[in-house]
């Protein structure tokens, strides 16, 4: 980890970074209905990409297509040759009928030495859970254990599907801080799905807003110095969270289809009705 930390840390915002995964003109259909279409995205080493979007907008589908878990209808989605992934799936629950301790979970798909397991758990701050039953873990503990599992594989790309689900606000900030550290230390690429439409991890390099297609993309704005934000989230949390301002140039009808925007080019503060509570503009796209 030591050597990688130096390289990763230095090259984080450098020029040519190794491409880890790429989607090109990606289309995925379920039962004849397009869930994703025309999606292009790249993710490179040392880069954090956060995917946001309403429920049913295809966030998890995009991730699964990149990982090769579902078949692609058109276009392509793939990991570059040699990219090792560490994956934390959206839903993870071990049934109580299966006795599984954390240390056994760590070696689920590949053996690992006891010291490597210990180091990985230590790195994410849950070394004390080594002998705990997986079924008894809290949401935050589960996410950290899964993160440790992913790290054990020495990945190039971390794929985290809603890593802060079931985690309280302080835990969310801490988890984001940890993910940022890991990126800096190891030069990892991080592809993350966020459950929140507006608040993303501050260290995100690129936000992709998805709703069947890529609605908009950009960088989150740093709001950690805004007094109101600080008051709302607290100093610690505000440092790791950021607000993403959607800049959409089109609207969706009730079925999620794009409709022509009458106020084209007129960038009113919130042309998409995305601003605060107006998620219903996408709700037909379940």
């Amino acid at each position: 980890m030591g050597a990688a930390a130096v390289i990763g840390g230095q090259e984080n915002h450098g020029g040519d970074r190794r491409l880890l995964a790429r989607a090109q003109a990606l289309e995925v259909q379920f039962g004849g209905r397009a869930v994703l279409s025309g999606v292009d995205m790249d993710i490179a080493a040392g880069e954090i990409v956060t995917i946001i979007g309403p429920n049913g907008s295809g966030k998890t589908t995009l991730v699964k297509a990149l990982l090769g878990l579902i078949s692609v209808t058109q276009g392509s989605a793939r990991l570059m040759p040699g990219t090792r992934i560490g994956y934390v799936p959206q839903r993870f629950g071990v049934d109580a009928v299966l006795p599984l301790r954390v240390d056994r979970l760590m070696t689920l798909t590949a053996p690992a030495s006891a010291s490597a397991i210990g180091a990985a758990l230590e790195r994410v701050g849950v070394a004390h859970l080594r002998r705990a039953d997986v079924a008894s873990l809290s949401g935050g503990e589960t996410q950290r254990v899964l993160l440790a599992r992913a790290l054990l594989r020495q990945p190039d790309l971390l794929v985290l599907d809603e890593p802060v689900q079931g985690v309280d606000f302080a835990g969310e900030a801490a988890l984001y801080a940890l993910i940022g550290e890991l990126r800096d230390e190891m030069g990892l690429g991080v592809l993350m799905v966020s459950h929140d439409l507006h608040v993303v991890m501050a260290a995100t390099d690129q936000v992709l807003c998805l709703n069947g297609h890529i609605c908009c993309a950009g960088v989150p704005s740093d709001v950690s110095r805004h007094p109101e934000f600080l008051r709302l989230f607290g100093r610690q949390a505000a440092a790791t969270l950021a607000v993403y301002r959607h800049e959409h140039d089109h609207d969706h009808d009730l079925h999620g289809h794009v409709v022509a925007d009458e106020a084209d080019g007129d960038h009113a503060p919130d042309p998409h009705g995305h601003g605060h509570h107006a998620h219903h503009s996408h709700s037909g796209h379940e």
Partner: peptide, 8 residues
């Protein structure tokens, strides 16, 4: 334990 994780 988790089919998607295993497959990935």
């Amino acid at each position: 334990v988790q089919a998607d994780l295993a497959k990935a």
